Computed example of a mutant assay.
Amino acid sequence: MKFWYMASGSWGAQCLLELTKKGVFPDLVVTSNPKPSGRGLKLRLNKVEEVANSLKLNLWRSENINLDEALKGELVAQKLDVIIVIDFGQKVKEPFLSIPKFGCINLHPSLLPKYRGAAPIQRALMDGQKVTGVTVFKLTELMDAGPILAQEEVPIDIDDTAGMLSEKLLSAGVDLLVTALNLLVAGTAKFKEQDESTATYAPKITNEEAFFDFDKKATEIHNKVRALNPKPGAYTIVNNKRLKVWRTKLINKEETLSTPRTILSIDEGFPVIACGKGAVSLRKVQWEGKATIDGRSFINGLRLHEGDVLP
Rank of each mutant, 00 (worst) to 15 (best):
L176Y: 02
I205T: 06
K249F: 14
D195N: 14
V245K: 00
N229Q: 05
A180G: 11
A189D: 10
R247G: 00
E220C: 12
A189H: 13
L170V: 13
I205N: 00
E153N: 11
A199I: 15
K216I: 12
M164V: 04
P232I: 15
I221V: 14
H222K: 02
N239S: 07
A234V: 04
E220I: 11
S197Q: 13
G173L: 08
K241W: 05
R226W: 05
L250W: 02
V178F: 08
S197A: 14
T179L: 14
I221T: 04
I148D: 03
V154M: 09
T206R: 02
I148P: 01
S258N: 11
P203A: 14
L169D: 00
T248G: 03
T161S: 13
K192V: 14
L250M: 08
K192R: 12
A162I: 01
L170A: 12
I158G: 02
L165D: 01
I205S: 00
G173C: 11
Y201C: 05
E196F: 15
P203T: 09
F214C: 12
Q151S: 11
L176K: 04
A227T: 00
G163N: 06
L170F: 08
L176C: 06
N239Q: 06
K204R: 14
T219N: 03
T206P: 08
K190C: 12
D159Y: 09
L169E: 00
P232S: 08
L177F: 13
A210Y: 02
E196A: 15
A180S: 10
N182W: 01
L228G: 03
N223W: 08
L184R: 05
P232F: 15
V178N: 05
K216G: 08
L165G: 03
Y235D: 00
V245C: 01
N182S: 14
I237R: 02
K231H: 01
N229R: 03
R242W: 01
G233L: 11
D157S: 13
T198C: 10
K224I: 08
P203H: 14
K217E: 04
D175M: 12
H222I: 02
T161N: 07
N182H: 07
T161H: 04
F191C: 09
E153Y: 09
D159L: 15
T256E: 14
K217I: 09
D215A: 11
G233W: 04
A150L: 08
T256S: 12
F191A: 15
V154K: 07
T200S: 09
I156S: 04
K192Q: 14
L250C: 08
A162T: 00
M164D: 10
K216V: 15
F191N: 10
A186E: 15
K249S: 03
E196K: 15
T206F: 02
T256D: 06
E153G: 13
I237T: 07
D175A: 15
S166H: 11
I221H: 03
I251W: 01
T188M: 07
V245A: 01
N223A: 11
K231D: 01
L149W: 02
A162P: 03
L183V: 06
Q194W: 07
E208H: 09
A199Y: 10
E196Y: 15
Y235L: 09
I158Y: 08
N252S: 06
P155R: 13
D157H: 10
E196T: 13
K231C: 03
D159M: 10
E152L: 10
L181C: 09
T161Y: 04
